[in-house]
Amino acid sequence: MNIFRFLGDLSHLIAIVILLLKIWKSRSCAGISGKSQALFAVVFTTRYLDLFTNFISFYNTGMKVVYIACSYAMVWMIYSKFKATYDGNHDTFRVEFLVAPTAILAFLVNHDFTPLEILWTFSIYLESVAILPQLFMVSKTGEAETITSHYLFALGVYRTLYLFNWIWRYQFEGFFDLIAIVAGLVQTILYCDFFYLYITKVLKGKKLSLPA
C-alpha cells in the first residue's frame, strides 16, 4: 500500500460520503444522476464478488463492504426515499450504450476467461464510463450545485491518484495491470474538462455553470 493508493481510496470514500450527506441533509437528490449511481452499484457488486473467494486484508474487505453498502444506500435514496426530488427528466443518458459495449469488451479483453474474472473486467470498464450520465446531466441543465461539483472533483482525484499508484507499483514492485491502467486513464481523461471548470470556477467561489 503506497500513499497514492491510500489517498486515492480515501478521496473515493470522501466523494461518496459527500454525496450521501448532501442528499440526506437536504432531503433532496436534485441534480444527481440516479443512472450513474445505479451503475456504480453494479460496478461495486460485480467487482467485489471476490469478497467470497479471496481474503486480502481487513482494510481491503472493510472498504469493499463500505463501498457496496454506500452505493446501495445511494440508489435507495434516489429511487425510493427521496424519489419525489429526483430529476428524472434530465437524467436521460441511455445506459445501454455504456453497459452493452463494456460487457462485450469484458468478454473479449480480459486476463482470464472465467465468470469472476469477466465480471471484474466488466466492472473496471464500466466504472471508467459510469460517470457519463452525471456529466451529461450537468451539461444538459448547464449547471451543478457546488456540493455536487465537490463530489465530482473528489471522484476524479481518486482515479488520478490511482494512476500515480500504478506508476509507483510498476517502478518499485514491477507490478502492472494493463486493463486497470487503460480503463483508469480513460476514466481520468473524462474528468479533465470538469477539473478545468472546477478549478477556474468552483474554487473561486462561483457556482459551476456552463456557457450557453
Binding site: 493508493r5 481510496d9 473515493h12 467487482r47 471476490d50 479471496n54 486480502i56 481491503n60 472498504m63 469493499k64 463501498y67 486476463h111 482470464d112 474474472e117 471484474w120 490511482y162 499508484n165 514491477g174 507490478f175 502492472f176 495491470d177 494493463l178 486497470a180
Partner: peptide
C-alpha cells in the same frame, strides 16, 4: 506481472 489474478486494489 501482467495478468493480475489476485486483484488487491479497490
Amino acid at each position: 506481472e501482467p495478468g493480475a489474478s489476485k486483484h488487491d486494489e479497490l
